[in-house]
Design a protein around this nucleic acid. Sequence first.
RNA 1: GGCGCUAUCGUCUAGGGGUUAGGACGUGAGAUUCUCAAUCUCAAAACCCGGGUUCGAUUCCCGGUAGCGCUACCA
Length: 484
Amino acid sequence: MENCIRVRFAPSPTGYLHVGGARTALFNWLFALRQNGIFILRIEDTDADRSKPEMTTAILDSLNWLGITWNEGPYYQSDRLQLYREMAAKLEKLGHAYPCFCTPEELRAKRARAEAEHRAWKYDGACRNMTEADREQRRAEGRKHALRFRVPQEGGTAFEDLVFGSLELANSEIEDFVLLRSDGQPTYHLSVVADDLEMKITHVIRGADHLSNTPKQILMCRALGAALPRFAHLPLILGPDRSRLSKRHGATSVGAYRDQGILPEALMNFLALLGWTPAGGKEIIAPGEMIAKFDLSAVSKSNAVFDPEKLAWMNAEYLRHMPLEKLMPRVRAQLAAENLDADAFYEGDGARAARAVELLQTRARTLNDFSQSGRALFSDDYEYEAEARKKFWKDAELPGLIEALAAMLDSNEAWDAASCEKVLRDLAEQRGVKAGLLINAARVALTGQGVAPSLFDMMEVMGRARVTERLQRAAQVMRGSAAS
RNA sequence: GGCGCUAUCGUCUAGGGGUUAGGACGUGAGAUUCUCAAUCUCAAAACCCGGGUUCGAUUCCCGGUAGCGCUACCA
């Protein structure tokens, strides 16, 4: 396995897993599976102030929920500080790094001044060419120092990105960046290179926000005499206003979509299509097919706006086409979260519970719809929507008609959708009213809503006792509100 | 500001020197109908601008513009 492909996803636990991170994880995962490689999870928690352990848990949960699995890790950078210090020491010994005694305050001041004078600011190398004697003296004074990388002043750094193609940056554009903070903590640039090298990462697949960091990391690899990994940068995911996705765009975390009733397979499919088009152009695509078709060279170079509308459509698509036996457990879990129990409601008749779910299936956009707009199919505790009452209960004859309907249904021999429909249509004809009047009024009676599945299908599922009871109750309510 | 990257319908995208510039979401209209979905049909909707190369550019090159990224002792 010497030439094995190795990739990693390296989130920092400073927040929840957002959709951009999830997409990066997904592409790494797809690539690893496609190439028969190893997918490593690494937690970049070197910023002790901003990292939160509970965020790590949340990130792992989100990845698990999405079905993105890893072969190694999670590794924690905070456990690997020794490695970074050793690498820093090696770079310093080789003359590729030097101590910098400038304090953050001094640097901030210089930067502010440069900005005020509209000059471009880059670390000025104040400590770059300090003599060893000077360094010793400062150390003797007890002054803390950071360690900076000595960037070559000549030439440029070029690399071939698997997505963006050949790129080059003049070294003069790169400042002597910090490797080790004055408290001895490594910075991102150090730890990322140390880990990618030590973990023998072959392909660095990450967000395009790291594009401009890449030359720095390449310079470090070269200084160390190490082989370079390949790089593939992914275009960023933007909010509807084309700015980088952030909290103010509403739901951006994977967990938020889970809470909205989005299916993990729908979110995965949707994310896969953000920046990548599988050959063949089919949009609904199962993980196995994604893996088989995944190709970094087919990844787009331009940023993509996250469109929740399309996600919603795709989720509905998954909901509609999911086999009932797969859907049921998810709906049960969703109902349970709302303290509803389909099986108890249907007295243990699983087939009827499933039939109820089926009625809602083509109409549901999210899993949450089953307990929300579908509530009356799983609970006797539901409310009549004011708008529905206003629209469908306004006819003065309705209370009598609905009571008659209840009575006729109650005494009708058969109980199925077709016979319920016949009873209702016969009644409508007898009384000389349109069937639609009764149907719509009855729908509101049975569900409290103007919008619901087909009335007769619902009657069949709910059963005689419940239907007649709900109709009678509705007639009472109609009378009550007419009187008041 | 400096440096870099990117640029096809509102959005995700396909395509590519000669095409009626294709698909999907969304939008509009219609069919169906017990409401709403689903389903089916149809429609409107795009090559950022300016130069060059070429018989011919949306496609290739250059410039502009715009958007985004980086510009931390954040990652």
